[in-house]
Amino acid sequence: MCNDFFQNNECKEFCDNRKTLVVKDSGNKQEYRVTNDKDKEICKIKVDGCLIKEGEKCDYLIISCEDKSAFFVELKGHDLKKALGQIDSSITKLKDEIQEFKLYARIVLNRNPTPDINSSVEIKLKKRLKQQNGKDNGDLIQYKSKVLQESI
Score class of each variant (00 low, 15 high):
residue 120 S to H: 08
residue 128 R to K: 13
residue 109 L to W: 02
residue 49 G to F: 15
residue 114 T to G: 09
residue 114 T to L: 11
residue 78 H to V: 12
residue 44 K to F: 06
residue 113 P to C: 05
residue 116 D to V: 14
residue 40 K to L: 12
residue 38 K to I: 11
residue 80 L to K: 03
residue 71 F to C: 01
residue 38 K to V: 12
residue 53 K to D: 13
residue 122 E to V: 04
residue 82 K to A: 11
residue 61 L to N: 01
residue 117 I to Y: 13
residue 100 E to Q: 10
residue 112 N to G: 10
residue 21 L to N: 00
residue 42 I to G: 00
residue 27 G to Y: 05
residue 128 R to W: 03
residue 23 V to M: 13
residue 7 Q to R: 15
residue 86 Q to A: 13
residue 26 S to M: 11
residue 45 I to H: 00
residue 1 M to G: 15
residue 62 I to H: 02
residue 101 F to E: 01
residue 24 K to G: 06
residue 59 D to L: 01
residue 59 D to I: 00
residue 122 E to R: 02
residue 34 V to M: 05
residue 18 R to I: 00
residue 94 L to T: 02
residue 39 D to C: 07
residue 50 C to L: 13
residue 10 E to C: 13
residue 112 N to M: 11
residue 93 K to W: 04
residue 78 H to K: 14
residue 8 N to I: 10
residue 51 L to F: 06
residue 25 D to S: 09
residue 49 G to S: 14
residue 38 K to R: 15
residue 89 S to T: 09
residue 108 V to C: 01
residue 133 N to F: 05
residue 116 D to S: 10
residue 40 K to T: 10
residue 79 D to Y: 06
residue 58 C to S: 07
residue 59 D to P: 00
residue 152 I to V: 10
residue 55 G to P: 03
residue 85 G to W: 04
residue 60 Y to V: 05
residue 109 L to I: 08
residue 1 M to Q: 14
residue 70 A to Y: 01
residue 97 E to F: 03
residue 88 D to P: 03
residue 85 G to S: 15
residue 30 Q to F: 10
residue 59 D to R: 01
residue 118 N to W: 08
residue 89 S to W: 06
residue 152 I to M: 08
residue 97 E to T: 01
residue 41 E to Y: 09
residue 35 T to S: 10
residue 145 S to H: 11
residue 78 H to C: 09
residue 64 S to C: 08
residue 67 D to R: 03
residue 70 A to M: 03
residue 67 D to G: 03
residue 74 E to A: 09
residue 34 V to N: 01
residue 133 N to P: 06
residue 80 L to N: 02
residue 62 I to F: 07
residue 40 K to N: 15
residue 92 T to M: 10
residue 87 I to A: 05
residue 142 Q to L: 13
residue 17 N to Y: 09
residue 23 V to N: 05
residue 121 V to R: 08
residue 95 K to N: 15
residue 108 V to K: 00
residue 87 I to Y: 01
residue 7 Q to H: 12
residue 112 N to V: 07
residue 95 K to P: 12
residue 108 V to T: 02
residue 36 N to S: 01
residue 4 D to Y: 13
residue 137 N to A: 11
